[in-house]
């Protein structure tokens, strides 16, 4: 047996986090129509890294979405009120699915694992909404894509916890495509890191990462973007953008783009920035009479919105905007 290693997470003290065992495991709840089957299984969690080993072998909720499934209503996964949880979602060939996972889970040290498998030609719109109230959470979400599968994934990180969020997309099948948009609002004394990895294993695969983070108070937010094109993944494309906006002198932000390219016939690119509020934009809004606090809120909302662009649910969007406004008003006070 080969030794399990930790994933590469620059500036995130993952090994230190993993010294403390995860909180006891509970089950997620799943809401979907009758074509979707849900079962609780023991020890089904694949162990590929030291994080998987840390999660252990608790009960796993498995969700099967059959081949050819088409539905407008989303398949909804809701994290438990308190405690760690694991879920595996299998999406059958050619299925078209809207998927949501929402977490407002409390606890001391959560271990959360979500594994999404897309069979050939499956298409998934995935919305992740993190509103953990736990102290610390180690969250691992992985998507595996077979031939010509498509994933459009938005992650809204509006949680209070510290810890690490590991988002991984593996473009295994030929012609598979994925976009991951991440919008994070970090506040208080939160110390949280995102490592978002997109790996092109298959030929003619396309993977895009777009991360936007706003940091207020004394929070520290780390964005790692890891684009990896494996040898043999000819004709592939891997792009990433990581942007962090800091408010207040005590906010800290890092944006680390990493590109690993082992194949010649590919395109890849990255952009990263850590900035403060754009003075030109503030001036423009204020020159129309908007008070500074309101102008600032609008600029910040706009910045974050670029990571939450794909959220079409108006109620959720409103809720997120409201949370942004409230967080910023508190930061102003």
């Amino acid at each position: 047996m080969t030794e399990l290693t930790l994933p590469n997470t620059p500036k995130i003290p993952l090994a230190r986090y993993l010294k403390q065992a995860p909180d006891a495991f509970d089950q997620v709840s799943v809401q979907a129509d009758s074509a979707v089957t849900v079962s609780q299984t023991a020890a089904a969690w694949p162990v590929r890294s030291a994080v998987d080993a840390w999660l252990g072998a608790p009960p796993v909720t498995e969700v099967f979405i059959p081949a050819g499934y088409h539905a407008e209503a989303p398949v909804q996964v809701t994290g438990p009120q308190t405690g760690s949880a694991l879920v595996i979602l299998h999406v059958g060939a050619g299925a078209h699915v809207r998927l949501q996972d929402r977490w407002a889970t409390s606890g001391q040290q959560l271990g959360v694992g979500v594994l999404l498998e897309l069979a050939a030609n499956a298409e998934v719109d995935w919305l992740t909404y993190d509103a953990f109230t736990a102290h610390t959470a180690i969250v691992q979400r992985t998507a595996e894509l077979a031939d010509h599968a498509k994933l459009n994934w938005t992650v809204a990180g509006f949680a209070q916890n510290s810890g690490a969020s590991l988002l991984t997309v593996n473009l295994n099948g030929t012609g598979s495509q994925a976009t991951i948009n991440v919008g994070v609002l970090a506040s208080g004394s939160q110390h949280v890191g995102y490592t978002t990895a997109m790996t092109n294993n298959g030929r003619q695969t396309q993977g895009h990462i777009n991360q936007r983070g706003v940091i207020v108070g004394k929070a520290h937010l780390i964005f790692n973007g890891i684009g990896h094109i494996i040898k043999g993944a000819r004709g592939s494309d891997n792009q990433q953008e990581n942007r962090v906006l800091m408010l207040g002198s005590k906010a800290r932000g890092d944006a680390n783009p990493i590109l690993l390219i082992d194949e010649n016939d590919v395109t890849a690119g990255h952009a990263a920035s850590v900035t403060r509020v754009d003075r030109t934009q503030l001036y423009y809004l204020m020159s129309r009479g908007l008070p500074e606090s309101l102008a600032k809120r609008l600029v910040i909302r706009g910045f974050l919105e670029a990571g939450l662009l794909e959220i079409t649910d108006p109620a959720l969007k409103q809720a997120l905007f409201k949370q942004i406004d409230e967080t910023l008003v508190m930061a102003d006070a």
Binding site: Q281, Y284, G289, P291, E292, L298, G302, F303, L304
Partner: peptide, 24 residues
């Protein structure tokens, strides 16, 4: 007076290069 107060007093500047603001 800061810019927003001047605006509320009745000043308006039609700018040569207006800023672009996403999300609003």
């Amino acid at each position: 007076l800061p810019v927003d107060e001047r605006a509320r007093l009745g000043f308006f500047l039609g700018m040569q290069y207006p800023a672009e603001i996403n999300g609003v």
